[in-house]
Design a protein around this nucleic acid. Structure first.
Lengths: 181, 181
DNA sequence: CCCTGTCTATCTACTAGTAGATAGTAATAT
DNA sequence: ATATTACTATCTACTAGTAGATAGACAGGG
């Protein structure tokens, strides 16, 4: 509907995923959308509110893209999961919530609550996939957390190395290690 | 020698590892050491210089703590490696270089060069350990990167969840998966 | 005429960094 | 021994620029 608001969210997500929450300002954002900083406040009263909106939007888009964990073979669902992170990385972006997670202890506490929701959803979804591989609930949850952590770390390393193959190698390794029952 | 300089480095490392490079200012640092911001510039001409000094000091301390990769059994060396990350986390700190790595694209490029050295050293050291487990060079390097990435990601997740058990579970999982030949 | 969305103008607080003064230390020269 | 000089480490005071945020004006569309 509101085109400017969407543009702001899209650009803010890009800035957040590349530079971090403390790495971009309303000035940066306003400039790249072509308005004044004061106009951002019309759409998002505070930077904290903008951050919360970004996290929640990201969570919704992410979970929508994942879909029903039972809708394909577990292996295909795991590869879909990895491909979402790979998609961000191919645009030189971190996982939005991984980035916020790294900075979390210096950020407004309101962001923390929304961040937990993202990771909760991820763990639940992944656990369901691993469950279907005949693992116990406990092992499935452990594998879910292992995959999630590995991918977040691999994104950081891949960006540091400026080489997406780094991520591809690691994600292939962790997938094949955890696929085997 | 210079006590103030050491205090500055110690406190700056703490701030960097908890809040990120863009998450602390000279004002924060000066306050917690009990001097004025201008006095920091006597010891470190710029914030970039401070950042570089922190990364290099961290790298040296880290590699010294790891010691000779052949000086104990591979399994013991891997557990030592994990314990260094665990030590940071038990003080609610990220890996200093993992934190910088997450923010890297918004930081002065001088930091990038020093950061590469840290990860290079880590990969070489870990590869030597995995080598001794009878793996090919290629697989050893792949396992080195997998372990490193997983631990960096697990630190983020553990801090987000505010639960060190999260890290302990994941590090145990990845260690046992990669120890098996 | 009101509502939406933007603007200008402004505010307070903070950012990294600089200039110049000061006090103490330590080596050197007379 | 004392005076000179240089160095170390800090301070106060300042600059130019940026941070997020607010108030009020104004244009255009319903």
């Amino acid at each position: 509907m509101n085109d400017t608001k969407t543009k702001l969210l899209n650009k803010a997500a890009e800035l957040l995923q590349t530079r971090g929450y403390n790495g971009f300002s309303f000035h940066d954002l306003a400039d790249s959308v072509g308005i004044r900083t004061s106009s951002i406040h019309f759409h998002f009263p505070t930077k904290t509110n903008l951050g919360q909106t970004l996290i929640n939007r990201y969570t919704n888009e992410f979970m929508t893209a994942l879909g029903d964990p039972d809708a394909a073979t577990p292996n295909d669902k795991l590869r879909l999961y990895v491909s979402l992170f790979h998609g961000s990385l191919s645009n030189n972006r971190m996982c939005l919530c991984g980035m916020v997670g790294a900075e979390i202890s210096g950020l407004p506490k309101e962001l923390n609550e929304d961040l937990q929701t993202f990771f909760d959803s991820n763990e639940v979804w992944l656990s369901k996939v691993y469950d279907r591989m005949g693992l116990t609930q406990i092992v499935a949850t452990r594998r879910a957390r292992l995959l999630l952590s590995t991918l977040e770390g691999a994104m950081i390393m891949s960006r540091v190395r400026n080489d997406i193959k780094y991520f591809e190698d690691i994600s292939e390794s962790i997938i094949s290690l955890t696929m085997v029952v």
